[in-house]
Design a protein around this nucleic acid. Structure first.
Lengths: 232, 232
DNA sequence: TTGTTCACATACCGCCAGTACGTACCGAGA
DNA sequence: TCTCGGTACGTACTGGCGGTATGTGAACAA
């Protein structure tokens, strides 16, 4: 993967703007090293010394580009989220029908979530390291935004009129469901079979919703949902 | 909540077996202090000195009862999970019909997940601090077990014959969905309204599944699920 | 009463994130 | 070509924190 980069020399880069390219290379080396180590050993067990050692720079360089360990983690986080988002949106672009689109996106998501880096950095340690607020902000800009778009398309395909909060609720539910499902796929003995099971389960859920849409079921009345709830 | 415990004296406890009671009190003080501080400041930002200070003991006592910071965190984790599990199972005991049961459990879960300690320690930091394996083990014994029981009842209410892996897949999907939904409830401006939205959304999903069950839809055939998937 | 063990308390160590400060060198102006 | 300012680092150090080694006194068994 990463040929242990020989000491980078500024003189190797010709022409004007060498400084920018060089420092960009330093950042890349830092993020790459951090991503590898965070993925392998986790955030807490990875020391900055180990990171700068693997990146072949010093702590001075690290602290010149990033405000600290958490900021570097966030850079890795963003990179992984962007990669996943790109793959999912690309996969979803093929289909035109909202239901096909959702299924294509689902498969792409289940594939993306099998990347060890994504699982550890984004799913497992992201909330704890970044804190709830920053984690939410990052999610909002990538995977959650995609999910929101898909859910909006799927749920508005029928005659349902859903207000924003309700759509957001559905989106969050599906987002959490797929994150969890992704874990089960990634940790399964046979990821391929697990992925098919998840597709089947999600397919059933979506089909059920579509059936309700076709039947014109009202959704704001809890009593029609099989619940015997009292408004206590 | 916690009157800042005046220095505990062994002589205050009468009769035989004073040692056991005393040490049990020490453990309780440590777990209580840890739960408060972990909830407020998070795991990394909470020092052992702060914990033992609030618990009015010393690090020697802590390391006598627990192998380290992570073990103490796990004790807090278990306590919170057990509390939540108890509340949910108790709420589910009232209903007899599987669908009513699931709804009662859902409401109880949404209420339990609003506890700041549960959210921070179990949901947010649990996976990162305990690691994926230990986190799974703990979940398996509490909230996940409950969810599995409910899902099993609900899905087997119809004529579907689901094998273990498929039930597990559904359970994990619902578990993830509700954890995520719980967050949206807990962080909402109006938790009550958010809780109702989640109930409505989950109700719709379950109703949709029930409709499929009633219609006798086959589930192992992806082509009937509205997917135009090719087995590539 | 005496020896043993439990339940702590105290003092200390090593690691590590973060900081202060020094330095080389690229690039713009004169 | 020669300053000169600022960028992009490198080096040395510190404070705090998790963990450990060891001391101590009270409870319990004999």
């Amino acid at each position: 993967m990463s040929k242990s980069a020989a000491k980078r020399l500024l003189s190797e880069i010709p022409g004007p703007g060498r400084r920018q390219q060089f420092s960009a290379g330093t950042r890349r080396a830092l993020v790459d090293a951090a991503r590898q180590l965070f993925t392998q050993k986790g955030y807490a067990a990875t020391s900055l010394d180990a990171i700068v050692s693997q990146a072949e720079v010093t702590k001075g360089a690290l602290y010149h580009h990033y405000s600290g360990k958490q900021a570097l983690f966030e850079a890795v986080f963003e990179q992984l989220e962007q990669n996943a988002s790109k793959a999912i949106t690309k996969a979803a672009k093929g289909a035109k029908d909202p239901w096909d689109k959702s299924n294509a996106a689902l498969r792409a998501f289940l594939k993306a979530v099998q990347d060890p880096g994504y699982r550890r950095v984004v799913v497992q340690e992201g909330p704890a390291v970044l804190g709830y607020e920053r984690f939410r902000e990052q999610e909002q800009r990538s995977s959650y935004a995609i999910m929101l778009d898909i859910v909006k398309n799927v749920l508005s395909a029928g005659a349902w009129e859903l207000d924003e909060p309700m759509i957001d609720t559905f989106t969050r539910i599906f987002h959490g469901a797929l994150n969890s499902a992704g874990e089960s796929v990634a940790t399964a003995d046979d990821p391929e079979a697990a992925s098919l099971r998840v597709e089947a389960a999600v397919g059933l859920i979506l089909t059920g919703l579509r059936t309700l849409v076709d039947q014109g079921v009202e959704l704001t009345d809890p009593t029609t949902l099989g619940a015997t709830s009292d408004p206590g």
